[in-house]
Design a protein around this nucleic acid. Structure first.
Lengths: 140, 140
DNA sequence: CTCACTGCAAAGAATTTGCACTGAA
DNA sequence: TTCAGTGCAAATTCTTTGCAGTGAG
């Protein structure tokens, strides 16, 4: 389902601000701070306000359309949340992030954790940190 | 190596405040906010200040003795970083967290991600969220 | 003794709220 | 037309800094 439909079905309106914010996130492959989203968004929608960015992100996160992630230096970045679980590998050097699909591997892993702890797990947060190919080459 | 030794070896002093803050973290099995650490710490060391908590956490994080984690509702919690990788399953109901050891499963998983993305992964953050046994029983 | 460490008060960021105006449906 | 959504300014909350006093080594 497209994000616009998700919004409408939940009774929310599709506005220029929301369109711009989602677009900015889609165009980026790096988690963005609210402030960064504002700057990039103003490129398309000059009157965009920071408050709207915050409110929109909160709404989108509520609807699971974006995900708040924990970046290196204590910041709250946001990325689009693809349906189905995906995770990010973030480069500690350049910050570039790549998504990778979690196959059965994670499911199996979660099942194992459930067996060990007795918890019933229904969500998880996984982020890998390392060096992307480009930065590896540069370091060598 | 004990945390006190780690501090000394790095040229820092072992003070009452630091002792208290580490103790509070060790006593908790839930990630704690700076504010919470302050409250619990004052139980042992009345004059403890929030500023010291922040500075101590920054120092301990620098030395890899504690780890900053990303909690549900956009907060920055801290937990002691056990040597060797451990992860947490957090109960969304009561907040109780349990650690579980990541066996080869995670290593295998990381290796798979490296193969898929070309990144060289050297750190990861994994948190599972769900219901602990007690809360499951309560819900039933 | 010295200088790292601390607490307080104040500064600076990050995030939320109140309110009147605007525009999607 | 109506009410959700918006931007601004102000209020809160979170975190960092400046500085003089204190105590670990």
């Amino acid at each position: 389902m497209l994000w616009e439909d998700t919004l409408k079905q939940a009774g929310f309106r599709v506005t220029a601000s929301r369109r711009v914010i989602i677009q900015v996130l889609l165009d980026s492959n790096v988690p963005l701070l609210p402030q960064e989203i504002l700057e990039r968004g103003r490129h398309f929608h000059g009157s965009l306000g920071l408050v709207t960015v915050y409110r929109t992100l909160a709404l989108l996160a509520e609807l699971k359309l974006v995900r708040r992630v924990h970046c290196q230096e204590g910041c709250h970045g946001y990325v689009v949340a693809s349906p189905g679980h995906r995770h990010h590998v973030i480069c500690r050097q350049c910050g570039r992030a790549v998504e990778f699909l979690s196959g059965d591997d994670v499911c199996a892993f979660v099942a194992q954790a459930e067996a060990k702890t007795g918890y019933r797990v229904d969500d998880h947060l996984l982020q890998l940190v390392g060096l992307c190919p480009a930065c590896q080459a540069q370091a060598a």
